[in-house]
Nucleic acid binder design. Structure first.
Lengths: 141, 141
DNA sequence: CTGAATCCACCAAGATACTG
DNA sequence: CAGTATCTTGGTGGATTCAG
């Protein structure tokens, strides 16, 4: 870890710009999108193949997620009208570029996950003690 | 930005690791968190001050968002038992570090937003034409 | 001023069944 | 194989009110 914590103080400053992040996050920040993108980052894949890789996703959600990604130009859908039908999905150039900031976020998550979990436990513990101490100053209700 | 689009093909490869991103995204990817973080990136702020800056957030959501952030150790809450009470919120070191990947995402969003919107329109248009053409064989694409 | 509590609307998401 | 259709439910978030 870099001890020299670069004192970041100058993010965007404007809320409109935070909106852009929030908006982007609203699209890729759902339950399945990043996992599908992660799966597709390995290369083109078929519908059911993605379904197996992601594992846990329902057909409905897979369809919706893929459609959302296609709509935003992050994945490209190629359909082969064979029998049985075959549909390939693959990341577009835009989609592959998205991986970069996603990876940054992933790195952060991986590095600071322990700290977050620790903070979480400490918070829970503190909350618990606060709950166990309803007396003291309070005029008993 | 580097025009030389480094051909990213080797993201994590494992879904478990995609889970980490998804999980992190689930926490910071809600409707208000990033905006609150963005507001706090400018320095410590009081409760209502944040509420005014973010603008549009309800008290409930502000409270919940702040509590979530505090719980994860991303913001620190300082209470001054004065009258009227005063509570300051400020990013922790962890919170400030989060800004970095957030900024990366923000940069991506800002740069590729036009492409996404364009893809969206094109998609809508294509969908429309598909709806207007229920007949035909449409083997030609 | 800084919340907590309650009620309510909406939608994301799962389960299931059906189609081409 | 690759979806679509329908139903149902749990959670998110808004509005309002109450409290310390």
């Amino acid at each position: 870890m870099s001890d020299t914590h670069t004192f970041v103080r100058t993010i965007d400053a404007s809320h409109d710009e935070c909106r852009a992040v929030a908006d982007t996050l609203a699209r890729i920040g759902d339950k399945w999108t990043v996992m599908v993108v992660g799966a597709l980052s390995q290369g083109p894949m078929r519908y059911n193949q993605i379904g197996r890789v992601v594992e846990g996703i329902s057909q409905r959600m897979l369809t919706l997620t893929l459609k959302g990604l296609e709509q935003d130009g992050l994945v490209e859908r190629t359909m082969y009208p064979t029998i049985p039908p075959r549909v390939d999905y693959e990341l577009t150039e835009l989609g592959r570029m998205l991986i970069v900031p996603l990876q940054a976020l992933y790195d952060w998550a991986l590095e600071h996950r322990p700290a977050m979990l620790a903070a979480r436990e400490k918070f829970a513990e503190r909350e618990l003690r606060a709950a166990l101490r309803p007396a003291s100053i309070s005029t008993s209700k």
